[in-house]
């Protein structure tokens, strides 16, 4: 029967992704300037966790433990978080084109973060980014509702309008306040980069994953209730309005946390859930955890490419995800047209 075949596929997929993550992560730490091996990396990690002796020089050790390991961990957390945000938004808005980037949440979060960074508003960065993301979400949903019947395309158009506007305000603030070299840094962050990720970013993003994504994954089945719309969800005993608000609020919060670390990285939240659905089918029980694993791997690989492809220069990872993601987005649009 197909159901069991699908179950087996999901199980195999989960195992492959779970094994691939640490292998690719180690590989990502090895890659780049400094001649390292897999063994060196694990020995160094072990030494820092109190197992065994250091094998590398202090400089190499610094590269591994202070730069690459945290960066890899942040990439995995951001990718996983973005993918789950996208899957959840696609489900509760019944919009296959929904993701934090296209609906303007990332731009809003950037604006919030820039306000906190540059205008000296005394709010913790992730909170400011969350406020921006929530504002952008409210604007996008409000605008899409005002246009008339809410369709996926209209929502994306509304998101485009909102993110253009908030992006312009963000740019304005940057031009107004930033001087000298930091301009370049901020620009990189705006396009999405993990270059500055260190241990505090690891704690922040992984805390976001544990506190926000784990509960959503646990109650994933409720997202299935939205398959036939709000009224059907209500007849199954779900409060659609409250559930949607809660879940969208959670995605805005997570987007805020991620953007405050990485800047706005596009298309991971859109493409990964669609790709994973090909394997798992639409049920969120399997979709969400596998999307999290796959999203982590996708951003890990993209970031490693961004870091190493043009060494010693580094690309913002957002450029890599857009280069790959935008054509995939076009593909999803084409598929949509065919089914509609």
């Amino acid at each position: 029967m197909r159901m069991t075949a699908r179950r087996r596929r999901v199980a195999i997929g989960a195992i492959v992704l779970s094994v691939a993550t640490p292998v690719l992560a180690t590989f990502a730490v090895v890659l780049g300037a400094a001649d390292l091996s897999f063994g060196d990396v694990w020995a160094t990690i072990g030494a820092h966790l109190g197992i065994g002796q250091p094998v590398l020089t202090p400089i190499e050790d610094g590269i591994v433990w202070q730069r690459r390991v945290p960066r890899v961990l942040v990439a995995i957390a951001c990718g996983a978080g973005l993918a789950v945000c996208g899957a959840v938004m696609q489900s509760v808005t019944r919009n296959p084109l929904a993701d934090p980037y296209l609906l303007g949440l990332s731009s809003g979060a950037s604006l919030g973060a820039v306000c906190a960074l540059l205008l000296g508003i005394a709010v913790p960065l992730p909170i400011a980014a969350f406020a921006g993301a929530a504002l952008a979400l409210a604007m996008t949903v409000g605008l899409a509702t005002a246009i008339g019947q809410v369709t996926p395309t209209r929502t994306v158009l509304a998101g485009l309008a909102v993110s253009s506007m908030l992006g312009a305000v963000t740019s304005l603030i940057i031009f107004w306040t930033v001087t000298g070299d930091s301009y370049r840094e901020i620009l990189g962050w705006l396009m999405g980069t993990l270059a500055a990720a260190r241990w505090p970013a690891v704690w922040l993003t992984w805390a976001g994953l544990v506190v926000i994504v784990v509960p959503i994954v646990l109650v994933a089945r409720r997202l299935d209730a939205f398959a036939f719309g709000d009224r059907h969800a209500a007849s199954l005993g779900i409060h659609p309005g409250r559930t949607r608000l809660l879940l969208l609020g959670a995605t805005a919060l997570l987007t805020g946390i991620l953007v405050s670390v990485s800047g706005s990285i596009g298309f991971v939240g859109l493409i990964v859930p669609h790709a994973v659905r090909l394997l798992t089918g639409p049920g969120h029980r399997a979709l969400l955890p596998l999307a999290a694993l796959a999203g982590g791997i996708v951003l890990l690989v993209a970031d490693t490419l961004a870091r190493t492809a043009f060494e010693p220069r580094e690309l913002p990872v957002g450029i890599v995800t857009a280069l790959v993601g935008a054509p995939a987005f076009a593909l999803i649009l084409l598929r949509q047209r065919r089914s509609a």
């Binding site: 197909r2 019944r94 398959a227 089918g281 049920g283």
Partner: peptide, 11 residues
């Protein structure tokens, strides 16, 4: 009712 999702009938 229609669904965007590719659910099977058993689902």
């Amino acid at each position: 009712a229609a669904s965007e999702l590719a659910l099977t009938c058993l689902e």
